[in-house]
């Protein structure tokens, strides 16, 4: 059970953070390729949210909001992607920031790890007075805490 990497994408589809925790898990690609990947994923995520085979979200939302006070869950985009070599979990925050966690295919409890990573993001990035929203994350404390947490997870 290994966590390979973490990517954070802002709500405009820009890459604001990427870190690899395990050598040999994923192919080494350049930062430029990571930027392209983040942008591509952002678009694909938007498409997957609209592909619901059971019905159209717009008509659904209009009819239910006019008739009753209950609002259906907003359509969620891609949440888990599986391939032969890895598994990717995507977590979208209420504000549209996407956390992509890459792990090997046998990793369990990714939800809990994701939650902890998000907590660390709120604690050490959002509460950092020098951090500008939507800009690349350069917070030393976040880096250190994240690295030690993932290292602990990987060594289990």
């Amino acid at each position: 059970m290994t966590i390979f990497a973490l990517i954070i994408i802002n709500k405009a589809g820009g890459l604001i953070y990427h870190r690899t925790f395990h050598e040999g898990g994923l192919q080494k690609i350049s930062t430029n390729d990571y930027l392209v990947l983040a942008g591509t994923f952002h678009g694909v995520h938007a498409i997957t949210a609209r592909l619901n085979p059971l019905g159209n979200h717009n008509t659904n939302r209009l009819s239910s909001s006019s008739s009753a006070g209950i609002r259906p869950d907003p359509p969620s985009g891609l949440e888990v992607l599986e391939s032969e070599n890895f598994r990717m979990q995507c977590f979208t925050t209420m504000t549209g920031i996407k956390f992509l966690l890459f792990s090997d295919t046998t990793q369990t409890n990714v939800d809990i790890i994701m939650r902890r990573v998000y907590e660390m993001y709120t604690d050490y990035v959002m509460k950092n007075p020098f951090y500008q929203l939507e800009m690349p994350v350069r917070c030393d404390l976040f880096d250190r805490k994240l690295l030690s947490y993932i290292r602990e997870m990987n060594s289990r």
């Binding site: 192919q27 690609i29 990947l37 997957t48 359509p75 599986e82 391939s83 070599n85």
Partner: peptide, 14 residues
């Protein structure tokens, strides 16, 4: 690109 050329996409879930 991430998993190497021998990797294959299997599924995704929303």
């Amino acid at each position: 690109k991430l998993g190497g050329d021998d990797d294959a996409f299997i599924s995704f879930r929303t």
